[in-house]
Write a protein that binds this DNA or RNA. Structure first.
Lengths: 213, 213
DNA sequence: ATTTCAACGATTATCGATAATTTATTGACA
DNA sequence: TGTCAATAAATTATCGATAATCGTTGAAAT
């Protein structure tokens, strides 16, 4: 509807981008759904321009696909591509975890706290909160690697993985998943970077979807 | 069905993007240089809109940086970041080369041909052509990994590396650089994926800039 | 009934102009 | 002088409208 309260703090294109991303993450906009510029513009009571900007941003994130003169759709990712995404993420995270371990940054308490929050979310079966904490756990590690290029690539893959996989797990599964982070914490704290590398890799791969071949 | 003049009309934003990218690669637009939308629009005799689209594309490529309400500049990459970029690229290419080797795709003749072209460019001291063939060599390998996610990330890093490093080497250096690809070809052909992995990694790292710490 | 293709509706691409924001300039005042 | 607020200039963000393009529909021709 009309704009009751437009917060002019953020640019319109930014606001539109955030809204659309939220809808895609929530599954409100499912893969393959078309995104029509003028429709969206009308909905947000703006012109076409900021909508186009927002769509470009989302495309850069890999969340939507656009074809010249044909418009944008929510990206549909095949199971194959999702597997590939996890494979690459496993490599990047293994490397990041190794670097972080070598750096000797003290993360134990922070990571344990995040796992605690994960378990809390698991008990409450709040899978959205769980996913957030889960991302935080890995983000802290990748950020501590000190390699910003690596962090950027990881964020990119993470957004795609989270928008494309709408998994809702049982409470037991969530609890097990939370527990599965502990060995990584220990490896980092122990300073065994080679072990940290392989544990991180296995951790990501254990969550990889099944290959459908 | 085949219309005689099937010249694919490229969009204005695409043309502007290509032109700007060329200028950045050529060093005509140096890092830090401002990109003013209306100036560019005037130069290309277009309106502001396609220029903004082009700038968004270039930003997504990591070639320029934009700040809200403040405009766009050619990205300045610190030596540190460039080192990080090479480190990550080394990881990705090592993994890609390993996958390609495991896939058993026959690449020997194609890769040898590319090295031949590299040497030709080296003799002619055509460093632009050399850089192109060099990219081709690695792109063929990454593409043969069969992992499109990996390919996309690699292309992204490759563009950044090529726009940011304007290296012109001596003929001898170019020839040595061309030769340094041979071990990788052999490792892939031999099927020794672990060796291929480490050779590819070392190859990238050997071209890494010196850390300035 | 099938094919062709012109006209139409829907949508994207681009335009020219205006509003909003940042940056530069000026001039009063201590 | 030097500081700082007010103003002007430059530039980005957004608007509303038009042009270009794509897909579809339906009637004419075979």
């Amino acid at each position: 509807m009309a704009t009751p309260n437009a917060l002019p703090r953020i640019s319109l294109s930014q606001q539109i981008k955030d809204q659309l991303l939220e809808r895609i993450m929530q599954g409100e906009l499912s893969p393959g759904a078309r995104l029509i510029e003028l429709k969206i513009a009308a909905e947000f009571s703006t012109s076409q321009a900021p909508v186009r900007e927002a769509l470009r941003e989302l495309e850069a994130m890999g969340v939507i696909e656009t074809l010249p003169n044909k418009g944008a759709r929510v990206r549909t990712i095949t199971n194959d591509e999702l597997c590939q995404l996890y494979d690459v993420r496993a490599q990047l995270e293994a490397y990041a975890t190794q670097l972080t371990t070598e750096n000797g940054v003290p993360l134990k308490s922070k990571l344990k706290e995040i796992v605690r929050l994960m378990k809390k979310a698991a008990r409450e079966e709040d899978s959205t909160a769980f996913a957030g904490h889960n991302s935080d756990f890995h983000r802290v590690i990748v950020k501590s690697s000190g390699n910003t290029v690596l962090l950027d690539l990881w964020e990119n893959l993470n957004v795609q993985a989270r928008t494309m996989t709408n998994v809702t797990r049982s409470r037991r599964n969530l609890m097990e998943l939370a527990d599965s982070h502990q060995p990584i914490i220990d490896a980092i704290a122990s300073g065994n970077s080679k072990l940290a590398n392989s544990l991180a890799k296995e951790h990501v791969l254990s969550n990889r979807p099944k290959s459908t071949i």
